[in-house]
Design a protein around this nucleic acid. Structure first.
Lengths: 210, 210
DNA sequence: TTCAATAGGTGACGAAGGTCACAATAAGGA
DNA sequence: TCCTTATTGTGACCTTCGTCACCTATTGAA
């Protein structure tokens, strides 16, 4: 990647800020399936996604994980901002779903830039905003919807984010991400197949009509 | 209230900012039970709570409401910030639970002050932060916990926020706020009474031991 | 090709929680 | 006091979902 991608991904940032990011930020690479953040971890930096794709999960004490939203290139992890700023443990887990590169911004710069660069300030705030809305949507689903609707929504999100109609995932993983069980997901998928919404394959689900 | 309370409630704000708030902000009063914000409404201002107490709810299309968190004097509604800034409809509902006064800050100042006053900037960001955490806690509860635990948590929050062991509320209202049904809440409360955790009265619940 | 591992299918069952019907108890007016 | 209304209690029943047991199908390595 290097010198070209920062201006491309963050065109709204001042030239000077783009330069500082490149100077002070530390690039880290993660293989697909690798964890970027673990629940309980402390942060001394926030992370901007350069390429790849990241999923954000909430975990409980028993290790149940619960998928909340995707992070794409050009976005930042709002939680890493919260945690770094408040010196708190991470309450979430982040996992790469493709090979992913991020750039880690140390806390000190993150704060310094807030006063120094308008665009950074705006970026931080709009990151909070958009994640706030994602969380509200998530709450809607688990509070008001049944597993069938949640599964459809999950597949739809996956489809949009990946830009593909063939989702390569198995039932067990979906169950984990929705905090449900494999059998339930299998049954619901079967029903969706009967309604012509999807076509089931081994290790893959083909979206027909959602 | 008037000229004294702003410095008291927002001591971190610059004198000049406190003055501007008083000049540009519009004070509004709400009786207990009155709605401050409705789902679907547009905002042109954000609101700071001066006194009283406000509850924030998520609503779905069928009018089910779902309690998320309290707002107390000295706090701001993060959602009104999001909505005002993005010119979006409100996705939440706010209701006064005591007689409440707020001060409404028009969008233009809210944005102007972001650059002008460090303390305002910090206030906005820390408002997002704390509400973010509240939402995560809420998600935890509905994703991982049963109704029994959620009810206990609900009562505990109520107790802490009101600073009283006697909660005047009926079972139906609790059910609404937890998006459950009256019978379920009645049964769970009965069970809690048998365990000596609460004592039930008409229109009131007395907290013994949670 | 054989076998073990992985993925998915299915029936039985139980627990949590929602719904319905209706009884029992206040509380508050007329 | 008597009647109406609001609140709470309770049993019966249903749906959704989680769990268990066990089966079948696919795949890939030995």
């Amino acid at each position: 990647m290097e010198l070209s991608t920062i201006p491309q991904l963050f065109p709204a940032f001042e030239k000077e800020l783009q330069r500082e990011i490149q100077e002070q930020g530390e690039i880290r690479s993660f293989k697909s399936e690798e964890q970027l953040m673990r629940t309980g971890q402390y942060f001394r930096s926030t992370m901007l996604i350069l390429n790849g794709l990241v999923k954000i999960y909430r975990e409980d004490e028993e290790g149940n994980e619960f998928f909340m939203y995707y992070l794409q290139p050009g976005q930042a992890c709002a939680l890493s901002m919260v945690c770094a700023a408040e010196h708190k443990r991470s309450a979430i887990m982040a996992k790469a779903v493709k090979d992913t590169e991020i750039i880690a911004i140390p806390l000190q710069y993150m704060e310094e830039w807030m006063g120094k660069y308008k665009s950074w300030n705006h970026f931080v705030i709009s990151t909070y905003r958009s994640r706030f809305e994602e969380l509200l949507t998530t709450i809607d689903h688990i509070a008001f919807r049944g597993m069938d609707e949640r599964l459809e929504f999950y597949l739809k999100k996956h489809q949009e984010t990946m830009g593909a109609n063939l989702i390569t995932i198995n039932h067990q993983e979906i169950a984990n991400e929705l905090n449900s069980s494999r059998e339930v997901i299998s049954r619901l998928l079967k029903k969706m197949e009967q309604f012509g919404k999807v076509k089931l394959h081994r290790n893959a689900i083909e979206i027909i009509q959602l």
